[in-house]
Design a protein around this nucleic acid. Structure first.
Length: 224
DNA sequence: GCGACAG
DNA sequence: ATCTTGTCGC
């Protein structure tokens, strides 16, 4: 069995180190997206990091890491399952981005250390949490208009924004990962939208990690 | 005790 | 997260 108490203690300790101020300077030329998928058996964790040029948002580099799965999925402890593969992918990159968007929550987490924050703290770079589902906190319904948003609250503490990125799609949960403020995080997510539910960095990372048509077409076209 | 629960 | 067919709507 896994002793979650140790991980929870680690999360509480690390959460205190998360920086919620902007610690990067513009202009930014490279933005990354990070996501993790699992192969059929579930025994292999596959992380992908996509590096996009900004502002063109074209894919300029990507790396995939395949690691043996060590942890089961436990809500709230996702980073312990996904971080090893993310770090492996990170280490193999040639280009280093100034900002990273991670598929998952940042500080909108029961102990304020979701995978986006954990990853950012570990590598010491600014990260943004872009999650597709709520983990904790409460919010009012978001109006069905693009860019409508509602604050995500845990009592009096705002954990992030619930943000409608696309009509008739479930909203995104945007939160501080590390070394960035919430307002700046939202600004960068908006700047990276190209008409899909997910911002481009996360959209590409997901496509690469899961071998989706978007990425397969890109590969095919590249080899022509 | 029951429901909720990122990926 | 992954597997998986059809179906509805823009």
């Amino acid at each position: 069995m896994i002793d979650c108490r140790i991980m929870i203690a680690e999360q509480k300790e690390k959460a205190a180190q998360i920086i919620t101020r902007d610690q990067f300077s513009e202009p930014i030329s490279l933005i990354a997206g990070a996501d993790v998928g699992f192969e059929q058996s579930g025994q292999v964790t596959r992380a992908a990091i996509a590096i996009l040029a900004y502002p063109s948002l074209t894919l300029v580099e990507y790396k995939i890491a395949r690691i043996k799965t060590t942890m089961p999925y436990i809500p709230g402890l996702l980073s312990f399952r996904e971080l090893p593969a993310l770090l492996a992918a990170w280490q193999s990159l040639i280009l280093k981005p100034q900002l990273i968007m991670v598929d998952g929550h940042g500080i909108s987490h029961p102990r304020r250390l979701g995978v986006a924050s954990h990853f950012g703290l570990t590598i010491g770079l600014p990260t943004i949490g872009v999650a597709k589902k709520r983990l904790c906190g409460e919010s009012l319904p978001v109006a069905n208009e693009i860019a409508s948003k509602q604050p995500l609250f845990d009592n009096d503490e705002q954990l992030g924004w619930v943000w409608r990125s696309k009509l008739r799609c479930n909203p995104l949960y945007i939160s501080v990962g590390h070394k960035i403020s919430l307002s700046t995080a939202c600004m960068w997510v908006e700047r990276c939208m190209r008409g899909y539910r997910l911002p481009e960095p996360t959209r590409w990372a997901d496509a690469i990690a899961s071998g989706r048509p978007l990425f397969l077409r890109w590969l095919a076209q590249k080899s022509e």
